[in-house]
């Protein structure tokens, strides 16, 4: 029999959560899949409301009702809506989202061609915005006096529409200073990373509002953590400020940080539509916008659902990460 050991001071008996470790991520995954199904119904329903369908769009201008009906039958668009929905979902699951109504190309090809450009744009913006929002949130949240100024800056900055940021940056960097081109037309087939000067304006106009928005959200979490007793204790023991930030504050910020990043990524994907269209950057965002304008339903459905899937996956991942990083749940 071992003698009872003295517990090290300050280490309270750790409470283990009653949920087995795998249950939470599985639940997050299941909820994400359910939400995605719901979103697919919404996307399909909204695009089905379009005036005019594939047949009317394809038919030659002088076609009669008879001819349009024949074409509709030929395209398989004359079935009941739920049948069309099921065949669409079936095609998506089998890797075949259909063909474009405008140019007859497979949707999968168009998406695969545009995906790297948007991934570079969103990834680059997130890489730039993530450390910035942590720093901004830390600055605003840990200010002991005069918190009004940083908070006002973050709130006001996050309220500015992305369009305004993009236009302002273009007017400054391209119009006034002439450093970068105002239009980011990328030659087809060329990876965007090879033309970094074209990425400057789009990435900055997406990263800047995101950093301010995320910083504002994190400021509250930082203020909460900084106010906890263990931080005050570490300060009183004379631990240098950077060590307090890294050891006593940062681990507690991982859960909110993961959630804020997921929300910010969703916002970035939505903002990509505006930024890509404004700068003529050939990504999925501008593809979505031009397909909506030309009523190219299969492309709209696929791109919108892909965006929603990425957003939901990000949120589910953040939930899983947040559950796993809370220092109070640590079992080691």
């Amino acid at each position: 029999m071992r003698p009872p050991q003295a517990a090290p001071s300050g280490a309270a008996p750790r409470r283990r959560s009653g949920v087995p470790p795998l249950r939470a991520p599985l639940w997050a995954l299941a909820r994400g899949v359910l939400l995605l199904c719901a979103v697919s119904v919404v996307v399909f329903a909204a695009t089905s409301l379009l005036p005019g369908d594939a047949a009317e769009l394809r038919a030659s201008p002088g076609a009669t009702e008879e001819q349009i009906r024949a074409l509709r039958e030929e395209l398989g668009q004359d079935a009941e809506p739920w049948r069309l929905y099921l065949s669409w979902v079936g095609g998506l699951l089998g890797g075949d989202p259909g063909t474009s109504l405008v140019n007859g190309r497979p949707v999968a090809d168009a998406v695969a061609q545009r995906l790297p450009a948007t991934a570079t744009l969103v990834g680059g913006s997130l890489l730039l915005a993530a450390p910035a929002m942590l720093l901004l949130g830390g600055w605003a949240g840990s200010a002991r006096r005069g918190r009004a100024v940083p908070t006002a800056l973050l709130t006001g900055g996050a309220a500015v529409p992305t369009v305004v940021v993009a236009a302002g940056l273009a007017a400054l960097l391209s119009g006034a200073l002439g450093w970068v081109p105002a239009v980011s037309l990328l030659p087809p087939g060329r990876p965007p990373i090879q033309s970094p000067e074209l990425l400057v304006l789009p990435v900055l106009s997406m990263a800047l509002p995101t950093a301010l928005f995320g910083g504002g959200l994190l400021a509250g979490a930082v203020a909460d953590v900084v106010g906890r007793p263990h931080v005050a204790d570490a300060r009183r023991r004379g631990r240098p400020p950077w060590a307090v930030a890294a050891v006593d504050v940062l681990p507690f910020l991982m859960a909110p940080f993961a959630r804020v990043l997921a929300v910010a990524a969703g916002g970035l994907i939505a903002a990509a539509t505006v930024v890509e269209t404004l700068f003529g950057y050939p990504g999925l965002g501008s593809l979505l916008v031009s397909s909506i304008a030309s009523r190219d339903v299969p492309v709209v459905q696929t791109v919108a659902l892909l965006a929603a899937a990425v957003v939901l996956a990000g949120l589910a991942l953040a939930d899983a990460v947040a559950g796993g990083t809370d220092p109070r749940r640590r079992t080691w």
Binding site: L35, A38, V39, V42, V43, A46, T47, L49, L50, G266, G267, I269, A270, A271, T273, V274, L288, V289, I292, R295, V297, V300, A304, A307, A308, V311, L312, L315
Partner: peptide
Amino acid sequence: TDLLLAVPSLLLALVVAVAL
């Protein structure tokens, strides 16, 4: 509300703008 908050508003606006 969880369902609605999972979709970015601008994407939703774009999909709605298709029809309305």
